[in-house]
Computed example of a mutant assay.
Amino acid sequence: MNTSSKQDERIARMTFASVYPHYLAKIEKKGRTEAELHQVIEWLTGFDAPKLQQLIEDKVTFESFFREAIINKNVHLITGVICGYRVEEITNPLTQQVRYLDKLVDELAKGKKMEKILRSSL
């Protein structure tokens, strides 16, 4: 699915630090932990907790965040709808990666088992 170039540009310029507190609040409200959030982010990007903290402090954009990431080889197993878009059909690679992260956070907040979120039992 095509997203508008304006939306893609807006996502690229958005900082990870501006969105992270929203991810955290969303999952904590549903009884999940920051450690679980970090586990999900590390699975997707390869970033451990100290690296995540550095990226937050440096206020990196999503463009820089995902440029540094080592995307999990099983990312293609993330499917479904997030923010009105089917993630597997998003054509802009950066927007797709951000939506993958959104999808994983959403699954965590919905109480899915970690094995399912991390696609380890598939």
Rank of each mutant, 00 (worst) to 15 (best):
E89K: 10
I90V: 15
G84N: 10
K73R: 11
C83D: 15
V81Q: 12
R86S: 14
I78A: 05
A69C: 08
G111P: 03
K73M: 08
F66W: 13
E68V: 08
G84T: 08
K103V: 00
G111V: 03
R67C: 02
Q97F: 11
N74I: 03
V81C: 04
A69T: 08
Q97H: 13
L104S: 02
E68I: 02
I82G: 06
E68W: 04
G84I: 14
V105H: 00
R99S: 14
I82C: 07
I90R: 05
N72K: 07
L104F: 05
T79I: 06
L94H: 09
L108E: 13
Y85P: 11
Q97G: 07
Q97P: 05
E88C: 03
A69K: 02
T79E: 15
E88I: 05
E68D: 11
E107H: 06
A69Q: 01
F66H: 12
L108W: 07
L108T: 07
A69V: 09
I82H: 10
K73W: 07
V105T: 06
G80Q: 09
Y100C: 13
K73N: 10
G80I: 01
S64C: 08
H76D: 05
L108G: 07
E88V: 11
Q97A: 15
K73D: 14
E68H: 07
F66R: 13
E89R: 12
L77K: 14
P93A: 13
K103I: 00
H76G: 11
I78F: 03
L108Q: 06
I90S: 12
D102V: 00
A109C: 03
G80N: 07
T91Y: 04
L77G: 00
V98P: 05
L94A: 12
